[in-house]
Structures are given as C-alpha cells and as structure tokens.
Design a protein around this nucleic acid. Structure first.
Ligand code: MN
Ligand code: MN
Ligand code: ZN
Ligand code: ZN
Lengths: 136, 136
DNA sequence: TCCCATACTGACACCGGGTGTCGATAAGGT
DNA sequence: ACCTTATCGACACCCGGTGTCAGTATGGGA
C-alpha cells in the first residue's frame, strides 16, 4: 500500500529545486506552509519560485510522501512524517508536533461509520494544545 | 459553559436577514457554505447581501450556535447542531451528516496530550465516507 | 408615537492563498 | 552532443473571505 521514501517515478526528473525542498523538509520537524518553505529557501540562497514550491509540495502530498494539515485560517501546511498511519498533537503556539497512534480511535471510527451504513471510510483526527515549553 | 439557544446579547438587534438565515439553518440538515446559503435565500426571494451572510454565519459560529467544518478545499461550511459535544460522520457524495459521540475518543485525546505535557487541549475528529444511498 | 444613538446592511475595493498559462530552461535517454 | 519533454517561474487570474463606509433600520427612551 505505502511505498518507500526514495520512489523514482518514470518520467519524473530530479531537479535542484525538488532536492532543496526535500532537504529542507528533512530538517524541519513541524508543519510549515508553502510560503514559509519558500521564504526559508530564499533565505538560504536557493533560487526558487513560489509557484514551484506550491506545486512540489502538493505533488509530494499527493504521492503520500508528506502530510498536509489545514490551519484554522485554511492555509495548507506540510511535514515529512513516518510512513505508518498516525495523527498529530500540535502546539498552537510554537507548532511543535508529536506523532501519535490510537488503535482504539481507528476501530471506533470504523465501527461508527459501518453502523450507519457508510463505506470507503476515512477520518481526520488532530489534537491541538499548548506544550509545556510554551507555558512558562 | 454552554448557553441555551435563544441567547439575547445586549446590543444585538434582531433583523430580517438574521431571522432568514436562522430559519434556513433550521430547515437544512447538512453542512452548507456561506455561498450556498446566500444562493438559497435569494432563490426564496429574500433580499440579502453575501457579505451579511458571511458575517452572520461567522457570528453564529463564534457564539457556538452553529458548527463549522472546513472542506478539503478550505471552504467553511455551517450546520445547526445539537448543543452537546459531538463529531460528524459525513457522506462525501451527498453531504448527509450524522452526529456521533465517542467518549473513548475524548478520553484518548486528553490522555495522549497530557502524557506529552500539553494543556488547554482541543481536538477535531471527523469521519467521512460514502452513505448507503449513494452506493446504488 | 416620535426621536435618535448606533447596530446593521451591503456594494465595492481589497487581501491572500492558491492555480492556469506559456515561453524559457534543463533533465536525461540515445 | 542532440533532442524530446518534464519542469520552472513570472504573471495574470480565480475565489473565498474581510475592511470600508455611506445609507438603513432597530429598539430603548422621551
Ligand atoms: Mn487514524
Ligand atoms: Mn470530541
Ligand atoms: Zn509550544
Ligand atoms: Zn450520501
């Protein structure tokens, strides 16, 4: 179902821009918007267009290589995560992110949906709070 | 914590436009965007501006009178729900919505967050699938 | 019933995240 | 090297939503 990280799709070319985005995502640990990432790359001297960043992040998300989260303002943010199914615990102040698992939740969602006659069930679960460091 | 439905806030005036939106929300049973609601009101002959619909829905949401859901496209959609804490099971085709409860999920979210040192914990849980009627 | 301060309305300009276009560029197979 | 074509990125554009502000209407008081 899930494919390993360095997937090489035929017809896909490896460019300097994509490498730069991939490298940056490896270094970051929290969710960042396309503009954040573009800004950071420019700061580091990478010549790259905002459109390219938008498109590349979206492609990575479509390929399942990175996770997408919508901020309350509706802005998309991205993060390189582990391959296994999980959810996120995010600090509303510093955006520190922890991957969490919850088999009980998975089962509950499935059960509730089936009981109501639903199929092809999907779900979103996100926990937001203020981390210990941000409460000083 | 939660206040009952017909809250009268001092300084708040009851207008024809707000009444129309409130009435429509009572009749609808699924999540609708501001533009959906505006369109439906115009179809019914209500003279009302789109800006007013946007603002009123947002105010109702802020007051906790209606629930907000963000579509995958980032668009906000609204629905009048029950007063108790619940989550939603939504059909991705017809948008049919079922309110569901899950005490186990509430506890799990709280526990996981506390274990990682988080406070002021909030969470979002939504289940999406295809309802029986939409599988014919 | 009339008055009036002011909450509300809504047309319009504007904002900002994101997408379509398309000529220029550069992978990478041969 | 050469050539096909995926990719880039400046730019125009889309669209949901917000700020502005002159005009309107509510509702508490006289
Ligand atoms: Mn899950
Ligand atoms: Mn809950
Ligand atoms: Zn924090
Ligand atoms: Zn359905």
């Amino acid at each position: 179902m899930t494919e390993s990280r360095p997937t090489v799709v035929p017809g896909q070319r490896s460019t300097r821009q994509r490498a730069a985005i991939g490298d940056l995502l490896d270094q970051l640990d929290d969710f960042r918007s396309a503009q954040d990432i573009h800004e950071e790359l420019r700061r580091r001297g990478e010549g790259i267009g905002l459109t390219t960043v938008y498109r590349t992040l979206q492609a990575l998300a479509d390929a399942g290589e990175i996770d997408v989260l919508r901020t309350s303002a509706g802005e998309a943010s991205y993060r390189r995560c582990s391959d296994t199914h999980h959810h996120h615990l995010v600090c509303r102040v510093c955006r520190r992110t922890v991957e969490v698992e919850g088999p009980a939740v998975e089962h509950w969602a499935e059960k509730v949906a089936v009981e109501h006659g639903f199929a092809q069930i999907d779900h979103t679960v996100e926990i937001i709070g203020t981390c210990s460091g941000c409460r000083s």
